[in-house]
Simulated scan of single mutants.
Amino acid sequence: MQAPLTNRDYNPLSKLLHWLMALVIIVAWGVGYYGGAMLHYGVSDGETAQKIWAITLHKSIATTTLFLIVARLLWRASHRPPALADMPKIMEHLTHLGHGALYFLMVAVPLSGWANSSSAGYPIPVAGLFTIPGLVSKTPELTPYLVWTHWFLSWALGVTVVGHMLFALKHHFIDKDSTLRSMMLGKKA
Rank of each mutant, 00 (worst) to 15 (best):
G30Y: 10
G98M: 11
M165G: 15
L23I: 09
S178T: 13
S178R: 13
L16D: 08
R8D: 07
V27M: 02
S178K: 12
M1Q: 14
L74W: 13
G186W: 02
I55F: 02
G113Y: 04
H18S: 04
Y103S: 07
L135A: 15
R80N: 07
L68V: 05
I174V: 12
L74Y: 11
H150T: 09
M87K: 00
H171G: 08
H18M: 15
L142Y: 11
K176T: 05
G163A: 14
P140K: 14
G128F: 05
N7I: 11
S14C: 13
T56D: 09
L146P: 13
M21V: 09
E141R: 14
L68R: 09
P81K: 05
H96V: 06
F173M: 15
A101Q: 02
R181M: 11
V109N: 07
P88A: 06
I124F: 03
H18N: 12
E141D: 15
L180G: 08
M38A: 04
A108M: 07
L84N: 02
D177A: 07
Y34D: 01
R8P: 03
M165W: 14
H93D: 13
T143G: 13
V147K: 13
A101M: 06
S137K: 14
A77L: 15
D45I: 11
G36W: 03
F67L: 03
T64V: 15
Y145D: 06
V147L: 10
Y122H: 15
G36V: 05
P4S: 06
T143Y: 05
L142C: 10
L157M: 01
S14E: 07
P133V: 12
A156S: 08
